[in-house]
Amino acid sequence: MSSSAGPAPAGFAHRPRTYFDLIVAAYCVVLVLSNVAATKGVAFGPVLTDGGFFLFPLAYVLGDVVAEVYGFRAARRAIVTSFAAGLFSSVVFWLVIALPPAAFYEGQEAFESVLGPVPLIVAGSLLGYLAGQLLNAFVMVRIKARTRERHLWARLIGSTLVGELVDTVVFCTVAAPIIGISTLPDFLNYVVVGYAYKVLVEVLVMPLTYAAIGWLKRREPTYGTAVSPAGDAVAVR
């Protein structure tokens, strides 16, 4: 007896409704672009910085949003994922530079001069980013464990002061000689100005961070489940 049933329908994996994956994608884009932009030294009068100065603080805004809404475990996953994206982009640039240029291609030297330092910049950026972002998320979540839903401003500022300090010192130590900073006064200028700028940006955009966090909390269906500082869900009493 033949079966009248048709073939089984095509199967697909269920995609849970969450904004987390979009934030991780933004994390990766910001980190990769800021690493490339950082190869250019920039001077505003006596103030020294690099071309990624307006991009990289956004990574910490995203980090604050992830840590506040999703917890430390999710923040760690986002940080490691973007770290891998930055490392992969560095390897790709290195391989492309190493490929033999075609006879008609006249931009090899310019290509190398712009993207050649990227693997070295990425090494410093990723080391600083990994340490700084993990500290940022850890401090954010630990303060939230004490303040709960109150005093978001204290979590945002406290985590930024710690995370950005470690990130800036590590990155500037590696990047300074690559972009042409060779004297101690210029190096201190680079570190202090970079740190002050990043903290100031976080403070200035705090209203937007508040709005983004509030928007996500209202739309993530699982928000409200109590979460331990490690990022594990626990029962709400």
Rank of each mutant, 00 (worst) to 15 (best):
I121F: 12
I121Y: 05
L95M: 15
V122G: 07
L48H: 13
I121E: 01
G71C: 06
G107D: 12
A110S: 15
L62S: 04
A43N: 11
V92H: 01
A84G: 09
L95Q: 10
P100L: 10
S113H: 13
A74K: 14
E106T: 15
Q108V: 07
G116Y: 06
Q108Y: 13
A74S: 12
A78I: 04
Q108E: 12
V92W: 01
A43W: 10
E112T: 15
S125C: 09
P57N: 12
L55W: 03
P46A: 10
V96Y: 00
L115P: 02
Y70N: 03
W94C: 07
S113L: 13
G63C: 08
L115Q: 04
F54W: 11
G116H: 08
I121L: 11
I121S: 06
A59P: 06
L55G: 09
F104R: 12
L95N: 09
P100F: 07
P101W: 11
P119H: 00
P101H: 09
Y60A: 05
P46F: 10
P101E: 11
V114S: 09
A110Y: 12
F104K: 14
F93P: 00
I97V: 11
G86L: 05
A98N: 12
W94T: 15
Y105G: 00
Y70I: 03
F83L: 08
A110E: 15
F104M: 11
G63P: 04
Y70C: 06
L87D: 00
V122A: 15
L48N: 09
G124V: 01
V91Q: 07
I121P: 03
F56H: 00
E112P: 05
L55C: 05
A59N: 08
G116R: 02
V114G: 02
F53I: 11
A78Q: 07
F111R: 01
S82H: 08
R73I: 07
V122R: 09
V80Q: 10
L55F: 11
E109A: 15
G63V: 02
A74Q: 13
L62C: 03
G86W: 03
D64T: 11
L120H: 09
F53W: 08
Y60M: 02
A43S: 12
P117H: 06
